[in-house]
Design a binder for these strands. Structure first.
Lengths: 184, 184
DNA sequence: TCGCACATGTAACGTGTTACATGATTCA
DNA sequence: TGAATCATGTAACACGTTACATGTGCGA
């Protein structure tokens, strides 16, 4: 029950378990076969992480008793686990998140269906967009201030970043539209 | 001199020192004020990293003797250091790089000016583009196979990823044009 | 003289990476 | 019988994060 700060992987696991209870092995397959791959690699990370979550009382695992031999420990989130996850989902987005943790933000967004609230999702997208636009301003300024005679490659790398964030901004604007309608 | 595997931060430091010799404090400011911020935060990371690089003989630091009191250790890359860096710059790009280390790839590209070879840079961009297109195919397939009745948010998160990689692909195509001309 | 920017470091801690270890079940 | 897949873990290691420690020089 000790209060530890959870890592991105912890939240990813928690989120997946909220979708459907499953074993460590099942979770590994999800990471291997989907775009979530960037959040974990292998047994050495995932099993200890599940153990930690269990110790903290965020998930509970029970050995599947139907199959006698060949144990399989199926984990499901506890009430505290769900609360921790939703707290994370609704956490305020800051500059650091968009600067160096965009992937984590997208993970958060993916799990937002749990909240089942168009308002909260819209709010998430709007503050995401606002931070992205802010940061885009900063990047654009940096590109403008880049010395004319400086090497070409760093400038292009900067442009690559700008284009990526522009793409994120466009995506967010479009997504906001999808959550504009009234209702749940 | 022991052979250790270098981290991204190590290469970032090495690359910056190839641009101009400077102190740990100077380097920290670079990380704080530019888009490179995602690669380091603070003294606790950067000074130990410099120490490691020095032990491995990749950089050498000498205390600025002009200022009597108030020491300032200026680092510059050794020949081995430059070699390590260029080896990294010309390393083959694989799927894992585009899947989970795009930022590192952009860092590599930024330092490509050191190689001073349009051919190598073009080659870098072409294989980057090819891997990105490959991965885009995979992501698109995942989106198509996503169940119709599945939750909306994960699908949108997937689309966000797709759009980001599309932006990268567009950027790469444009950049390749800039390195098409004959010369150096 | 008060505080800020300069300038360099160390220590504890946790976590990801990599590699290894173990054994059951299924299928060719 | 051998290989691949299912299924869960442990151990060594290094790195990043965070917080702390220390002291100089300069400007208000």
């Amino acid at each position: 029950m000790t209060k530890h700060t959870a890592t991105t992987l912890d939240y990813a696991l928690l989120g997946l378990l909220c979708q459907s209870p499953q074993s460590g092995y099942d979770l590994r397959k999800v990471f291997e076969t989907t775009a979530l791959g960037s959040f974990s690699s292998s047994p050495g990370t995932i099993y200890p992480a599940l153990g930690r979550l269990e110790q903290q009382g965020l998930v509970e695992g029970q050995v599947d008793s139907t199959r006698a031999m060949r144990p399989k420990k199926v984990f499901r989130p506890t009430k505290a686990g769900r609360k921790t996850l939703t707290e994370w989902l609704s956490r305020k987005i800051d500059r650091g998140d968009v600067e160096r943790r965009t992937d984590e933000l997208m993970l958060r967004f993916a799990f937002h269906w749990m909240l089942d609230s168009k308002t909260l999702t819209r709010h998430f997208l709007e503050s995401f967009l606002s931070e992205v636009e802010d940061y885009l301003g900063e990047l654009t300024r940096q590109r403008k201030e880049y010395p004319e005679d400086g090497p070409l490659h760093p400038r292009l790398a900067l442009v690559a970043g700008i284009e990526q964030y522009r793409a994120s901004a466009r995506w967010a604007r479009k997504a906001i539209e999808e959550f504009k309608e009234e209702g749940s």
